[in-house]
């Protein structure tokens, strides 16, 4: 049916600087993803890098999705937004500030508030993985466009 194994998602730049430290969970995840491209290495000195990936912000929030007949929350929706941009050596935007969102739903029970806080953590981690994958596709596409 035409499917083939995905080739390396080569990026258009040999070296990349990321504005998130390698010892943070986010920084380590981004570095692992960049390593799979086979084309790009991470450098810690921004001045040396062909391109700079800037994580502009990660916003998290939750909204009430449904209520019980007694006005208590039955389901929450969690939403996470990742904003980033990619700059070239001269500081020109290769990818202008881009915002991507993911959301997850979970059932809430006020009598389980401690456990539900940890469920939020699980879902936020899942969304973060998802958003980083989407960001990688955009980084790879930026190479094709330019």
């Amino acid at each position: 049916c035409g499917f083939r194994l995905r080739g390396p998602q080569r990026l258009d730049f040999a070296t990349l600087h990321v504005n998130v430290g390698e010892l943070t969970e986010l920084g380590a995840s981004i570095r692992r993803l960049i390593a799979t491209t086979g084309s790009t290495t991470i450098v810690e000195d921004a001045a040396q890098a062909d391109a700079r990936l800037q994580i502009l912000g990660i916003d998290r929030g939750r909204e009430i999705l449904s209520l019980t007949g007694a006005g208590k929350v039955r389901e929450y929706q969690l939403r996470q937004t990742l904003r980033f941009q990619l700059l070239d050596k001269s500081g020109k935007a290769v990818i202008p500030p881009t915002s991507m969102s993911a959301s997850r739903e979970y059932t809430f029970d006020d009598s389980q508030v401690l456990g539900k806080a940890q469920e939020e953590t699980l879902l936020y981690e899942d969304m973060q993985k998802d958003l980083l994958q989407q960001m990688m596709r955009r980084l790879a596409a930026a190479e094709r466009a330019s």
């Binding site: 997850r104 739903e105 979970y106 059932t107 029970d109 389980q112 401690l114 456990g115 539900k116 940890q118 469920e119 699980l122 879902l123 981690e125 899942d126």
Partner: peptide, 22 residues
């Protein structure tokens, strides 16, 4: 049970190590 509850089943949950939070 001090801080533990069953996760809502979801795609995140079926790939997690424990079906219980806490």
């Amino acid at each position: 049970l001090f801080d533990t509850t069953l996760y809502t089943q979801s795609f995140a949950e079926i790939f997690s190590e424990n079906r219980y939070s806490g």
